[in-house]
Simulated assay, not measured.
Amino acid sequence: MNKKRILKFAILFMVLILSFSVFFIVKSLKDKQSDEFVYSGTAEADTINITSETSGKIGDIKMKEGSKVKIGDLVAVISSTETEVNLQNSEISIKNAENELGKIKDGNRIEEIKAQQALVEQAQAAVKQGDANVNSSKNNLNAAKTNYDYKKKLYDDTVTLYNNGSESKYKVDAAKNDLDNVSTTLNNAKSTLDISQAQLNNYQAQLSASSEKLNLLVNGATERDKNTAQYNLDKAQNSYELSKIQLDKNNLVSAVDGTIQTINFKKGEYVTPGTAIATLIDTNNVWVKIYVPESMLPNIKLNKNVILKSDFIKNKTVKGKITYISPDAEFTPMNIVTKKDRMKIVYAVKIQILDNLDIVKPGMLFDVNLK
């Protein structure tokens, strides 16, 4: 009887062991299958340089590193005496044009003729200065173009070396960043030349108008003379608006909502057009880049919604959407995998984070479930 009982318990024990074994095997297989769809990556965000469009000393820095900013928030102020003087000169030109129009309507005196002669001389000096500014802007543009061509050649050579396997992706990215910076400087130099040329044209127009006005004062005003004086007033007002726009460029504002990552200069330092005063992180455009094997490609597609999790965000999931799948294979990045895995060929996949942007920070590690 005892033997039968012992045998019965032995059989029951074996059944339990077999059941548990089957359970854990099935669970292990399911976990393994589930893990095949989970890949890790670090949150990243676009960085935007807040650059100066004018030259001058930094008059004030309104933000600190880590400050939250909204679109249009004032970040820094460039103190430019030349721009301020140009605005004051434009205001004076308006008053002169108004006075001249009034004189034509009231009749001319010898004193008025002498005053107009002085204005002609002033306009001649302005044209001379404007011509010097144009030549200076042309020299700056030539220097910027030479620098751009040099950086472009460096970038092209680096890309060629990278394609041949003789250079790193980091070097390519650095060369591209340098090229982007000098491209901005080149564009700003072109813009400065356009402004200088426009100012010269304006000065020439003022000189022409002042000279014609002098002739009108000497010969006597007609109805056409009165109209010309009115046109000169309109031009002076347009010049004032142009100077005001130029002065407004000294106020550097944020183009997007985000966080100030770095303040690159201090109050009192001199900057030139294209200088990055501060660097902003666009916290509304955050993504995670992962690397998947070729076998995973049939399971993913663009605009597919996925779920992300992070140990930094407890008890909460983050929604994401696949916005980019690399068409080219590459070796697994060496900084996030074991030495054995470095020989694997993978494809880069970019997932844009759709929600919880207020708590997601660049640098956070996320697990992305592609299932």
Rank of each mutant, 00 (worst) to 15 (best):
L233W: 07
P327N: 05
P298E: 05
Q117V: 10
K267H: 14
I25W: 07
A276N: 12
N147T: 12
S67F: 09
K68T: 08
V292I: 13
K316W: 00
I345V: 15
L18G: 12
T185L: 02
V318W: 01
N369T: 14
D157V: 06
D178E: 10
K128T: 09
E212D: 13
Y148P: 07
K103P: 01
V159P: 07
T158A: 07
V286A: 02
G56S: 11
Q197H: 09
R342Q: 15
A276P: 15
Y291P: 05
K30E: 15
N202Y: 05
K145L: 07
F13M: 04
N133F: 01
P298R: 06
K27N: 12
D341N: 15
R5Y: 08
Q33W: 13
E91T: 07
D248V: 02
Y270H: 12
I71A: 08
G258T: 02
I58M: 06
T185W: 03
R342M: 14
I359Y: 02
I195T: 13
I322F: 15
D106I: 00
T158N: 06
K249C: 09
G274D: 00
Q124E: 08
D311E: 14
K319S: 15
K4I: 13
N177I: 11
E212W: 11
I6W: 08
A125C: 01
W287P: 07
I351R: 08
A174Q: 14
I345E: 15
S183F: 03
A115M: 06
M334T: 15
K176W: 10
